[in-house]
């Protein structure tokens, strides 16, 4: 093997950096099946970071209990769809606290405020409240346009919690089903369905009718004349 081949072997391999990094981090365990890092095309740095974040615990047990109560209050089960806890929203929020550490203080602060407010209103902690008491507290902060100015900080926190809960819910298989999302699969786009166009009184621009992709042509290799007209 000459010098060039040596270098080629060393550098053409995309495994090189991976092996080196792995060697620097002995004892890293494979992620367990439940809490997996992102799949597909990961760098070694990404794999290590995901594994590390999945091992760490941010929320205390009390905080976890509050989160479970709150996310199911936000997105409960109904006849067609599961609740937020059933689709793993609390685990998603736990992960996001570590993935985006700037969320930690606002989230922890909001959860702490729940106990202050529970004590003010009911003389106890949030996790011991019954559901009508929980509703009373949440109603103070869940309606941004109506909430008293004194609660503006807690309203902001609840908006954050609502957004995270929705992210965690609608990014699941059940969430897609509820939303009616039909994509993320191979298909042939042939425009907006005719029934939908008719409903809105819209139509595809007539000018391009002759040139729009025809599904039946998708296997034919394109050829042009010298003027750039598609002829085959």
């Amino acid at each position: 093997m000459n010098r060039r081949e040596n270098l080629k072997v060393l550098f053409a391999s995309s495994l090189g950096a991976g092996l080196l990094l792995n060697a620097c981090q002995p004892g890293e365990k494979e992620q367990d099946a439940k809490g997996m890092g992102t799949l597909g095309g990961r760098t070694e740095e990404e794999k290590l970071r995901d594994a590390q974040l999945l091992k760490e615990q941010f929320f205390t047990e009390e905080e976890q209990k509050k989160i479970r109560t709150l996310v199911d209050f936000l997105l409960p089960a109904d006849e067609n769809s599961p609740s937020a806890t059933e689709v793993g929203v609390p685990e998603f929020i736990e992960f996001m606290m570590k993935d985006q550490p700037n969320l930690q203080t606002p989230m922890r602060g909001g959860l702490q405020w729940l106990d202050f407010e529970s004590d003010e209103l009911f003389g106890t902690t949030f996790n011991t409240l019954n559901s009508s008491q929980v509703k009373e507290i949440i109603d103070l902060v869940a309606w941004p346009d109506k909430a008293s100015a004194a609660y503006s900080g807690a309203v902001r926190w609840f908006n954050l919690l609502r957004n995270l809960t929705c992210s965690g819910y609608f990014s699941t298989e059940a969430g897609w089903k509820y939303m009616g999302y039909m994509g993320n699969q191979p298909n042939v786009w042939d425009g907006v369905p005719a029934s939908v166009l008719a409903k809105y009184g819209l139509s595809n621009p007539e000018k391009y009718a002759a040139i729009y992709l025809k599904p039946e042509d998708r296997a034919k290799v394109a050829t042009w004349d010298e003027e750039g007209n598609l002829i085959g």
């Binding site: 907006v192 166009l197 729009y212 394109a222 598609l230």
Partner: peptide, 15 residues
Amino acid sequence: GFFLPPPKPRLHELF
């Protein structure tokens, strides 16, 4: 240029 067929518009693009 030497173009392949374009896809039909999406609904919001028609709006």
